[in-house]
Structures are given as C-alpha cells and as structure tokens.
Amino acid sequence: MTAHHPTSHTAARVRRLEERLIAAGLTDDAELDGIITRFLAGASPLNGARIVARAWVDDDFRARLLTDANSAIADVGLSMRSGLQEQRLTVVANTETTHNVVVCTLCSCYPIGLLGPSPSWYKSEAYRSRVVRDPRGVLAEFGLHLPEETTIVVHDASAESRYMVLPRRPAGTDGRTEDELAALVSREGLIGTALV
C-alpha cells in the first residue's frame, strides 16, 4: 500500500497552505474545525446499516432502493448531498448466486456519508489493481471464501456514481427489530468484502 509520511515536514506544509488560504480570505479556523467535527460525527457505517435493515424488513423500500437509491434513502433521513453536488448512489443486492464487491480503480470514490471514512486498504493501489483482476482471491484474503459457482460482480465507482452493497439477510434473524438487524451489518459487508 501507499506509504504514509506523517512527518513534521508535511505538517509544516499543511500549516503554510492553511495560513495562505486564511490570509486570502478563502476560509477560517472556525469553518475548518466545523467541517472536521461534522464529518467525524455524521459519516458512519451505521447509516448504511440502517438502510440495509430497512430493506430487509420492507420489500417496497427494497424495490425502490434498488431502482432509485437516492430518493429511497430519504425514508431513513439520509441523502447523497453531503458535498456540493449530489452523487448518484447505486445499491447492488447480493443473491443466492451473485456476490457484489465495490472498488474505485481510479482513486477512492466511496459513499463516505453512508459508510464512514474509507479504510486505507480501500484506497491502496494493491486493492484497486487486484480486485478487478482476481476478486475471488482478494475476497479470500478478507476471509470470505465464496463457492466456485457464486458469480462475483465487481463495481468500479466513479466521481459521479457511488455503490453500496445490500448484503443478504442472515438466516435465523426472523423477528428481530430493525435496530437489531442494523447492528449485524459491517462496513465490510457494505463494500462487499464480507457477507454481512
């Protein structure tokens, strides 16, 4: 993966940039602090998990989610309008025969508001280059060993279009509440590197 260089040199570069942009009147400390606070408070895989749980208990919601995710997620109080431009969300459902997994080969596109900050492995050249060539092998490295007969579909995200996986509802979860179901869903399940 890409090396991290959290050096004092880089931190000094950031300070110089920040001072320059503040001096130019383009931002200020309060705005920057507010952006970080809101990001850390709001962006979480719990959002994606709530969407999944609703789809597991409500067939009408599930159908709308799979055809027009952007409008459907408003039902659970979410939107893809976190930045300046609304990003198109496509939700892809795992089935008995098909498993979906998401990547951004060009950079790191990811529905950050629904899944939380993206993990370093998702942004690494190693994952981005290999998951489209050998998805079965990459999933196995995550401990997800899919049967040979399962079709794996890899979705390559872009700046305008983001993907989220709708995992299959685990067996033996009848009668659970939506909140209990949401608690079963992991970030990896929403990316497709885990079953749920």
């Binding site: 993966m1 931190a11 950031v14 920040e18 942009l21 920057l32 993990p119 370093s120 190693a126």
Partner: peptide, 25 residues
Amino acid sequence: DFTVEPDEPPFHADWEARVYALNAA
C-alpha cells in the same frame, strides 16, 4: 499486498484532518 488495519482511525494525524477540511472548504 494490502494490509487491513483493525480499528483504523479516520485520520492518522491532525494534518490529515486539516487537509480534508481545507479541501471541503
């Protein structure tokens, strides 16, 4: 290979968060 960092924090240093915020601004 890629490495999976358990319980990875959103940012690995304060300057990363500032860069994120500067871009958003």
